[in-house]
Design a binder for these strands. Structure first.
Length: 278
DNA sequence: AGCTCAACCTGGCTGC
DNA sequence: TGCAGCCAGGTTGAGC
Protein backbone atom coordinates (compact mmCIF):
# COMPACT_ATOMS: atom_id res chain seq x y z
CA UNK A 1 0.00 0.00 0.00
CA UNK A 2 2.52 2.65 0.84
CA UNK A 3 4.34 4.60 -1.76
CA UNK A 4 5.54 8.08 -0.94
CA UNK A 5 2.08 9.67 -1.22
CA UNK A 6 0.56 7.30 1.32
CA UNK A 7 3.44 7.83 3.72
CA UNK A 8 3.11 11.59 3.35
CA UNK A 9 -0.64 11.44 3.93
CA UNK A 10 -0.04 9.27 7.00
CA UNK A 11 2.42 11.80 8.35
CA UNK A 12 0.04 14.69 7.80
CA UNK A 13 -2.83 12.77 9.34
CA UNK A 14 -1.03 11.80 12.50
CA UNK A 15 1.34 14.65 13.31
CA UNK A 16 -1.19 17.24 14.56
CA UNK A 17 -2.56 14.77 17.09
CA UNK A 18 0.64 13.59 18.71
CA UNK A 19 2.87 16.63 18.41
CA UNK A 20 3.97 17.60 21.91
CA UNK A 21 2.54 14.41 23.42
CA UNK A 22 4.60 12.07 25.59
CA UNK A 23 4.72 8.31 25.25
CA UNK A 24 2.86 6.64 28.09
CA UNK A 25 3.38 3.03 27.08
CA UNK A 26 4.49 0.61 24.40
CA UNK A 27 3.22 -2.89 23.67
CA UNK A 28 4.99 -5.06 21.13
CA UNK A 29 2.62 -7.77 19.93
CA UNK A 30 4.96 -9.19 17.33
CA UNK A 31 8.36 -7.57 16.92
CA UNK A 32 9.55 -9.80 14.10
CA UNK A 33 9.45 -7.20 11.35
CA UNK A 34 12.11 -6.59 8.73
CA UNK A 35 14.43 -6.12 11.66
CA UNK A 36 13.39 -7.00 15.19
CA UNK A 37 11.72 -4.17 17.06
CA UNK A 38 14.13 -3.29 19.90
CA UNK A 39 12.94 -5.18 22.97
CA UNK A 40 13.70 -2.23 25.23
CA UNK A 41 11.74 0.23 23.11
CA UNK A 42 9.25 0.93 25.88
CA UNK A 43 12.03 1.74 28.29
CA UNK A 44 13.58 4.06 25.73
CA UNK A 45 10.41 5.87 24.67
CA UNK A 46 8.57 6.16 27.98
CA UNK A 47 8.09 9.83 28.83
CA UNK A 48 9.69 11.13 25.66
CA UNK A 49 7.75 13.72 23.71
CA UNK A 50 7.21 13.85 19.96
CA UNK A 51 8.24 17.29 18.75
CA UNK A 52 7.65 16.64 15.06
CA UNK A 53 7.33 13.95 12.41
CA UNK A 54 9.53 14.18 9.35
CA UNK A 55 9.33 12.05 6.25
CA UNK A 56 12.45 11.01 4.37
CA UNK A 57 11.68 8.89 1.35
CA UNK A 58 9.22 6.37 2.70
CA UNK A 59 10.62 6.55 6.22
CA UNK A 60 8.76 8.35 8.99
CA UNK A 61 11.08 9.94 11.53
CA UNK A 62 9.51 10.83 14.85
CA UNK A 63 11.67 13.49 16.52
CA UNK A 64 11.74 12.54 20.24
CA UNK A 65 13.63 14.12 23.14
CA UNK A 66 16.71 11.90 22.86
CA UNK A 67 16.61 10.65 19.29
CA UNK A 68 14.37 9.46 16.48
CA UNK A 69 11.81 6.72 16.27
CA UNK A 70 12.06 5.37 12.73
CA UNK A 71 9.02 3.74 11.18
CA UNK A 72 8.78 2.22 7.71
CA UNK A 73 5.53 0.75 6.42
CA UNK A 74 7.11 -1.76 4.06
CA UNK A 75 4.70 -3.21 1.52
CA UNK A 76 1.62 -3.56 3.66
CA UNK A 77 2.01 -1.35 6.71
CA UNK A 78 -0.73 0.97 7.92
CA UNK A 79 -0.27 3.35 10.82
CA UNK A 80 -3.34 4.63 12.60
CA UNK A 81 -4.18 6.63 15.67
CA UNK A 82 -6.96 4.98 17.63
CA UNK A 83 -8.45 4.74 21.08
CA UNK A 84 -6.91 2.10 23.36
CA UNK A 85 -10.37 0.57 23.70
CA UNK A 86 -10.60 -0.04 19.97
CA UNK A 87 -10.37 -3.71 19.15
CA UNK A 88 -6.95 -5.04 18.29
CA UNK A 89 -6.77 -6.53 14.82
CA UNK A 90 -4.85 -9.51 13.52
CA UNK A 91 -1.43 -8.31 12.32
CA UNK A 92 -1.32 -5.29 14.61
CA UNK A 93 2.39 -5.45 15.45
CA UNK A 94 3.03 -2.65 17.92
CA UNK A 95 1.11 -0.08 19.94
CA UNK A 96 2.58 3.19 21.13
CA UNK A 97 0.38 4.95 23.66
CA UNK A 98 0.00 8.70 24.04
CA UNK A 99 -2.41 8.99 26.94
CA UNK A 100 -5.89 8.43 25.58
CA UNK A 101 -4.66 7.75 22.09
CA UNK A 102 -2.69 4.87 20.66
CA UNK A 103 -0.63 4.62 17.51
CA UNK A 104 -0.93 1.14 16.00
CA UNK A 105 1.14 -0.37 13.23
CA UNK A 106 -0.78 -2.96 11.27
CA UNK A 107 1.50 -4.89 8.91
CA UNK A 108 0.49 -8.34 7.59
CA UNK A 109 3.64 -9.04 5.61
CA UNK A 110 6.10 -7.77 8.22
CA UNK A 111 8.24 -5.89 5.74
CA UNK A 112 7.91 -2.76 7.83
CA UNK A 113 10.34 -1.55 10.45
CA UNK A 114 10.27 0.14 13.84
CA UNK A 115 13.70 1.24 15.02
CA UNK A 116 15.34 3.63 17.44
CA UNK A 117 18.17 6.00 16.54
CA UNK A 118 19.53 7.84 19.54
CA UNK A 119 21.09 11.27 19.17
CA UNK A 120 24.26 9.75 20.57
CA UNK A 121 24.59 7.55 17.51
CA UNK A 122 24.86 10.62 15.28
CA UNK A 123 22.72 12.77 13.04
CA UNK A 124 19.65 11.06 11.69
CA UNK A 125 20.57 12.16 8.16
CA UNK A 126 23.66 9.98 8.47
CA UNK A 127 21.80 6.91 9.67
CA UNK A 128 22.69 3.95 7.41
CA UNK A 129 19.10 3.62 6.22
CA UNK A 130 18.74 7.31 5.44
CA UNK A 131 22.17 8.43 4.27
CA UNK A 132 22.16 7.01 0.78
CA UNK A 133 18.67 8.04 -0.20
CA UNK A 134 18.23 10.33 -3.19
CA UNK A 135 16.85 13.85 -2.95
CA UNK A 136 13.29 14.57 -1.89
CA UNK A 137 11.06 15.17 -4.92
CA UNK A 138 9.49 18.27 -3.38
CA UNK A 139 12.64 19.82 -1.97
CA UNK A 140 14.73 22.70 -3.30
CA UNK A 141 17.24 20.08 -4.45
CA UNK A 142 14.62 18.95 -6.96
CA UNK A 143 13.15 22.32 -7.92
CA UNK A 144 11.95 22.91 -11.45
CA UNK A 145 15.16 24.80 -12.06
CA UNK A 146 17.53 21.94 -11.24
CA UNK A 147 15.60 18.65 -11.16
CA UNK A 148 16.23 17.81 -14.81
CA UNK A 149 19.95 18.41 -14.49
CA UNK A 150 20.01 16.42 -11.28
CA UNK A 151 18.47 13.36 -12.97
CA UNK A 152 20.61 13.79 -16.04
CA UNK A 153 23.81 13.92 -14.00
CA UNK A 154 22.91 10.91 -11.87
CA UNK A 155 21.91 8.78 -14.83
CA UNK A 156 25.12 9.48 -16.68
CA UNK A 157 27.09 6.33 -17.48
CA UNK A 158 24.48 3.98 -16.03
CA UNK A 159 23.67 0.92 -18.10
CA UNK A 160 20.74 -0.21 -15.98
CA UNK A 161 17.22 0.13 -17.40
CA UNK A 162 15.79 3.51 -16.52
CA UNK A 163 12.82 1.93 -14.75
CA UNK A 164 15.07 0.07 -12.32
CA UNK A 165 17.35 3.04 -11.93
CA UNK A 166 14.48 5.32 -11.00
CA UNK A 167 12.91 2.75 -8.69
CA UNK A 168 16.19 2.33 -6.81
CA UNK A 169 15.73 5.84 -5.44
CA UNK A 170 19.36 6.87 -5.49
CA UNK A 171 18.67 9.94 -7.59
CA UNK A 172 15.24 10.88 -6.27
CA UNK A 173 13.26 9.07 -3.57
CA UNK A 174 9.65 8.10 -3.38
CA UNK A 175 8.99 6.75 -6.85
CA UNK A 176 7.63 3.30 -6.07
CA UNK A 177 6.64 0.63 -8.52
CA UNK A 178 3.26 2.08 -9.45
CA UNK A 179 4.31 5.68 -9.87
CA UNK A 180 7.50 4.64 -11.64
CA UNK A 181 5.53 3.14 -14.52
CA UNK A 182 3.15 6.08 -14.42
CA UNK A 183 5.88 8.72 -14.51
CA UNK A 184 7.77 7.07 -17.36
CA UNK A 185 4.56 6.89 -19.36
CA UNK A 186 3.84 10.56 -18.76
CA UNK A 187 7.35 11.44 -19.86
CA UNK A 188 7.13 9.20 -22.95
CA UNK A 189 10.18 7.19 -21.93
CA UNK A 190 10.55 3.46 -22.61
CA UNK A 191 11.23 1.65 -19.32
CA UNK A 192 13.96 -0.52 -20.82
CA UNK A 193 16.03 2.39 -22.09
CA UNK A 194 19.45 2.45 -20.42
CA UNK A 195 19.42 5.23 -17.84
CA UNK A 196 22.61 6.66 -19.27
CA UNK A 197 20.84 7.48 -22.52
CA UNK A 198 18.59 10.01 -20.81
CA UNK A 199 19.10 13.36 -22.52
CA UNK A 200 18.75 16.61 -20.60
CA UNK A 201 15.46 17.62 -22.23
CA UNK A 202 13.94 14.21 -21.48
CA UNK A 203 15.35 14.32 -17.95
CA UNK A 204 13.51 17.60 -17.41
CA UNK A 205 10.34 16.08 -18.74
CA UNK A 206 10.76 13.06 -16.47
CA UNK A 207 11.38 15.27 -13.44
CA UNK A 208 8.18 17.20 -13.93
CA UNK A 209 6.27 13.97 -14.67
CA UNK A 210 7.47 12.53 -11.34
CA UNK A 211 6.46 15.60 -9.38
CA UNK A 212 3.11 15.83 -11.03
CA UNK A 213 2.38 12.12 -10.57
CA UNK A 214 3.30 12.20 -6.90
CA UNK A 215 1.52 15.41 -6.05
CA UNK A 216 -1.66 14.23 -7.73
CA UNK A 217 -1.44 11.03 -5.70
CA UNK A 218 -0.93 12.94 -2.46
CA UNK A 219 -3.99 15.03 -3.21
CA UNK A 220 -5.96 11.92 -4.06
CA UNK A 221 -4.76 10.25 -0.86
CA UNK A 222 -5.72 13.28 1.12
CA UNK A 223 -9.23 13.22 -0.19
CA UNK A 224 -9.92 9.54 -0.61
CA UNK A 225 -8.00 7.95 2.23
CA UNK A 226 -10.13 7.98 5.31
CA UNK A 227 -8.47 9.80 8.13
CA UNK A 228 -5.79 7.96 9.96
CA UNK A 229 -7.25 9.11 13.22
CA UNK A 230 -9.98 7.06 14.83
CA UNK A 231 -10.55 5.27 11.60
CA UNK A 232 -11.47 1.62 11.76
CA UNK A 233 -11.99 1.01 8.09
CA UNK A 234 -9.16 -0.50 6.16
CA UNK A 235 -8.01 2.25 3.82
CA UNK A 236 -7.24 -0.44 1.26
CA UNK A 237 -5.78 0.59 -2.01
CA UNK A 238 -6.77 3.99 -3.23
CA UNK A 239 -5.34 4.95 -6.53
CA UNK A 240 -6.82 7.28 -8.97
CA UNK A 241 -7.24 5.84 -12.39
CA UNK A 242 -3.78 4.77 -13.51
CA UNK A 243 -2.48 5.43 -17.00
CA UNK A 244 -0.63 2.13 -17.42
CA UNK A 245 -0.11 0.34 -14.09
CA UNK A 246 -2.08 -2.90 -13.78
CA UNK A 247 -3.54 -2.34 -17.24
CA UNK A 248 -1.84 -5.21 -19.12
CA UNK A 249 -3.47 -5.79 -22.52
CA UNK A 250 -5.92 -2.93 -22.00
CA UNK A 251 -5.84 -0.13 -24.57
CA UNK A 252 -3.47 2.77 -23.99
CA UNK A 253 -5.52 5.76 -22.91
CA UNK A 254 -3.76 7.87 -25.55
CA UNK A 255 -3.27 5.67 -28.63
CA UNK A 256 -5.28 2.49 -27.90
CA UNK A 257 -2.27 0.21 -28.34
CA UNK A 258 -2.50 -2.64 -25.81
CA UNK A 259 -0.46 -1.91 -22.68
CA UNK A 260 2.48 -4.25 -22.29
CA UNK A 261 3.55 -5.85 -19.02
CA UNK A 262 7.13 -6.97 -18.51
CA UNK A 263 9.25 -7.94 -15.52
CA UNK A 264 12.32 -5.89 -14.63
CA UNK A 265 14.36 -6.70 -11.57
CA UNK A 266 11.63 -9.01 -10.28
CA UNK A 267 9.03 -6.23 -10.46
CA UNK A 268 6.24 -5.69 -12.97
CA UNK A 269 6.49 -2.79 -15.36
CA UNK A 270 3.66 -1.53 -17.55
CA UNK A 271 4.10 0.64 -20.59
CA UNK A 272 2.86 1.61 -24.05
CA UNK A 273 5.16 0.51 -26.85
CA UNK A 274 3.94 3.28 -29.10
CA UNK A 275 3.86 6.25 -26.72
CA UNK A 276 7.13 5.46 -24.92
CA UNK A 277 10.39 5.70 -26.87
CA UNK A 278 13.85 4.42 -26.13
C1' DA B 1 31.16 0.59 -8.32
C1' DG B 2 27.45 -1.46 -10.90
C1' DC B 3 24.35 -4.95 -11.45
C1' DT B 4 21.45 -9.22 -10.52
C1' DC B 5 18.98 -11.86 -7.62
C1' DA B 6 17.38 -14.14 -3.32
C1' DA B 7 15.27 -13.17 0.75
C1' DC B 8 12.14 -11.37 4.30
C1' DC B 9 6.31 -12.76 5.11
C1' DT B 10 1.22 -13.23 4.64
C1' DG B 11 -2.94 -13.21 2.05
C1' DG B 12 -5.68 -13.11 -2.03
C1' DC B 13 -6.68 -14.69 -6.41
C1' DT B 14 -6.63 -18.17 -10.32
C1' DG B 15 -6.93 -22.46 -12.17
C1' DC B 16 -7.15 -27.34 -11.82
C1' DT C 1 -14.32 -27.07 -1.55
C1' DG C 2 -9.48 -27.81 -1.52
C1' DC C 3 -5.07 -27.09 -2.76
C1' DA C 4 -1.01 -25.66 -5.44
C1' DG C 5 0.98 -21.94 -7.63
C1' DC C 6 1.59 -17.29 -8.52
C1' DC C 7 1.35 -12.46 -7.49
C1' DA C 8 1.53 -8.16 -4.56
C1' DG C 9 2.72 -1.12 -2.93
C1' DG C 10 9.76 -2.20 -0.51
C1' DT C 11 14.41 -2.69 0.50
C1' DT C 12 18.67 -4.94 1.99
C1' DG C 13 22.55 -7.69 1.47
C1' DA C 14 25.23 -11.37 -0.76
C1' DG C 15 27.77 -12.48 -4.68
C1' DC C 16 29.64 -11.79 -9.21
Amino acid sequence: MPELPEVEVTKQGIEPFIQGKAVTGVIIHDGRLRWPIPKNLEKILLGQKVSQIKRRGKYLLFRMDDGHLIIHLGMTGVLRLLKPSDELKKHDRIEIFFGKQVLRLHDPRKFGAVLWASDESGEIEKHPLIAKLGVEPFSDDFSDACAGQHLHLHAKGRQIAIKQWLLAGQAVVGVGNIYCSESLFSAGIHPEMPAGKLTLPRAKKLASAIKETLSKAIKAGGSSLKDFVNSHGDPGHFMLQTKVYDRAALPCRICKTPIKQIVQGQRSTYFCQKCQKR
